[in-house]
């Protein structure tokens, strides 16, 4: 008798190996199949844009069975908002917007004090409120495991308790492609179909599929200051501080989140291919331009526990 339990034979017919696109599409279809009312978190940034594109592909010839939700910090670059609206309209998505400003006005959260207030952290409350208000049971996000060390351990189906919190010690093991989306009352899931993508994969995909992306990702002239080793764009929310010298530089952004915490990089890359080349050659991770992660070593992990994206 053979000494193995499973008798693995060599293949004779062609099969397709799963690539990251097929995997993401499989996950999006699982979301539609497993949850009552999913929503796709959409910021207008490149990751959520790819997600929305993949969703369109995943459900052809039908329509994507969930809306887009944007949590607007009120500190966005105007280019991002214009792109968001045009995109949702062009692809026929329903777009829901919830504003951090409204959470501040209603006293749910307090604006940070100090010289550089960021609303990045406040978003979590607005998001959790929106999920509860609209009774979503799954929120699909564009986070990737290569972005940050605490994310390297995040599951594809990431369970949140009834208070919307993530417990890194009590994650559901994820086996094969059997995703467990079973929930109890008021529990939700965050879903990350791009978990296995890297920043280079994202740019590669944009090049190959000729996706349109916001102009902020390409080199443009902008007024900036140097602050804590980063290039900060001058906007109404991020005025220059006394003693800082405002310069005009050719820059692009690697992420297009909240203007108060999104650093620019000096760049001459004016189209997607040039950006891809820069990314492949770059030796800084994309979140290095985000000062909210640098506050403490475990900044991201702490924010995730609270219900951050």
């Amino acid at each position: 008798m053979s000494q193995t339990i499973w008798n693995v034979e060599k293949e004779i017919r062609p099969v397709k190996r799963w690539n990251i696109e097929e995997e993401a599409i499989y996950i999006l279809r699982e979301v539609a199949g497993q949850f009552r009312k999913p929503v796709l978190l959409f910021s207008g940034g490149k990751d959520s844009l790819i997600l929305a594109h993949l969703a369109v592909k995943a459900f052809l010839p039908g329509k994507v069975p969930f809306p887009l939700l944007h949590i607007d910090t009120g500190h966005n670059f105007p280019e991002t908002i214009a792109f968001r609206d045009e995109f949702a309209n062009r692809l026929g998505f329903e777009l829901i917007v919830r504003k951090v400003q409204d959470s501040i006005d209603s006293g749910r959260v307090q604006e940070e004090s100090g010289p550089f207030p960021s609303r990045n952290r406040l978003q979590s409350v607005t998001l959790l409120d929106a999920i509860a208000e609209l009774k979503f049971d799954a929120a699909i996000g564009g986070a990737r495991r290569d972005e940050e060390k605490a994310r390297a351990k995040e599951r594809v189906f990431s369970h949140r308790n009834a208070a919307g919190q993530w417990d890194p010690k009590a994650q559901r093991p994820e086996l094969w492609h059997l995703y467990n989306g079973l929930l109890n009352q008021d529990e939700t899931c965050r879903i990350f179909p791009l978990s296995n993508w890297t920043e280079a994969d994202v740019w590669q995909y944009i090049v190959e599929n000729q996706l349109e992306i916001p102009s902020l990702y390409f080199s443009h002239q902008r007024q900036i200051v140097h602050r804590d080793g980063q290039l900060i764009a001058i906007t109404p929310f991020t005025p220059p501080q006394p003693g800082e010298r405002v310069e005009t530089l050719n820059v692009r952004f690697r992420t297009v989140g909240d203007a108060t915490c999104t650093g620019a990089v000096a760049s001459e890359a004016s189209n997607v291919k040039e950006v891809l080349r820069e990314v492949l050659e770059s030796n800084l991770t994309e979140r290095s331009g985000r000062n909210d992660d640098h506050r403490t070593e475990a900044a991201m992990e702490d924010r995730k526990r609270e219900g951050y994206f």
């Binding site: 351990k153 890194p168 010690k169 994650q171 296995n196």
Partner: peptide, 10 residues
């Protein structure tokens, strides 16, 4: 190391 972590390189 207390949990599965995923790492990427190419």
């Amino acid at each position: 190391t207390i949990d599965v972590a995923y790492r990427y390189f190419a």
